[in-house]
Amino acid sequence: MKTSFQIGKIFGIPIKLHVTFLFILPVFALVFATNPAPFGFQDQATPLLNYLLSFTTTVLLFFCVLLHELGHSLVAQRYGVEIKDITLMLIGGVSSMEEIPRNPSQELKMAFAGPLVSIIIGFAIFLANFLVASLIASYAATPIYMMFNILSSINIVLGLFNLLPAFPMDGGRVLRAWYAKRMNYVQATHYAASVGKIFAFLMGIIGLFSNPWLILIAFFVYIGASEEDRSTTVTVTLEKYSVSDVMSPEVTSVSPYMNIDDLLHFMFEHKHMGYPVMEGNYLKGIVTLSDVHKVPSLERAVLQVRDIMTTTVISLTADAKASEAFKLMMSNNIGRVLVVDSTGSVVGILSRTDLMRAMMLSNEQL
């Protein structure tokens, strides 16, 4: 199931909406509609105007979140980082980057750019609202003034909140950049992630007695800090190896004309869950146990590998870094990649198991 869909591009960066955004949009609108001034529109004369203002405020708020993420992305692009897309989702916005800059100064500027954009937007709206209210006496009593006042306050709070040193929030990345000037990148990530987990624990405790949203944020911060710590450790460790160092050179393939029952027996015998599909010397695709699971039991004696295989094959060359293979597997949610030479011939196969084995052997050598 496709969980995100593109709605356009800004500066060449695809902008996507995650399905969770469609859930949070009416929730935020309801919060604004059911709260009195100065944080909502409950006191408006008509329910229709109430909900219209609430929905408009929510849309504008997420547009500001989009600008926040664009702040990160444009600075990252300046340093040569590829931005795959920006996705608006349940927890706000997420910029999908090829890789966070390892240079501490670059990461610090990139991390600080988002909160800075939010704070600038907040104060700009506040100043404009104040000037209009000074020139037009009746403006301060209008719902438009109230709407922009809410947007101003939330943007300032959002910018300052993101600067908390709770990794992987923006302030946590600023903290890692500070640590990275004084120690290696893995240690800097570990220390920043530890601080982030402490903040997540404190936010969760405060949330129990005040705001349930803090519990949700604490959960995402804790999980995000743990994942970033693990992912960085794996990536940096695997950078020491090339694909040829850790791949399996003996590639066991299957025929596209093998039926699914025979394929299952073959998988059980050879103890692997994915195989390239070869016809003679030609690569036709790749088939995995996940593909088999999609086939009803009664059809497995009739259908062939060619009926269920994936024809779009993700591959790497043998001289690529093992860390590139790890990122490729994670971004595509796959368990293995084929290794090819300059002519496109298959020379090996690399699985997550091979990468984890390299990780364990590297740790043993420390």
Rank of each mutant, 00 (worst) to 15 (best):
M330N: 12
Y275S: 05
G344E: 00
V313T: 07
F326D: 01
A320I: 03
T317I: 07
Y275E: 07
Y275I: 09
I308Y: 09
D261Q: 14
H272N: 07
H265C: 13
G335S: 02
I334W: 02
D341T: 00
N332E: 15
L316V: 04
H265Q: 14
S297I: 11
V292T: 10
V339E: 01
T343K: 13
E299I: 03
G274I: 14
A301T: 13
N281L: 09
A325P: 02
I308K: 06
V287E: 04
V292W: 08
V277K: 12
T310H: 07
L303M: 15
H272G: 03
E269M: 12
V339R: 01
Y275W: 01
G280Q: 14
H270P: 03
V337D: 01
G335K: 00
E269W: 15
T312M: 08
V292L: 10
D262I: 05
V305M: 10
I308V: 14
M278L: 15
V337Y: 00
T310R: 12
S342Q: 08
R336G: 03
V305R: 06
E324Q: 05
L298Q: 15
S315C: 06
L263N: 01
F326S: 03
A318G: 03
S342F: 12
A318Q: 01
D261C: 15
N332Y: 15
P276Y: 03
T312Y: 13
K294T: 10
V340L: 09
M267Y: 06
V337K: 00
K327C: 05
M278E: 02
G274K: 09
H265G: 11
F268Q: 09
K284A: 07
H272E: 12
V292N: 12
V302T: 14
R336Y: 01
V295P: 15
K271V: 10
T288H: 06
M329Q: 05
V277L: 13
M278C: 14
H265M: 13
G335T: 05
F266N: 03
E279W: 11
D341Q: 07
M273T: 09
S331K: 08
Y275D: 11
T311W: 10
S323H: 02
R336S: 02
G344K: 00
D261V: 09
M273F: 08
M309C: 05
E279V: 15
G274Y: 09
Q304E: 11
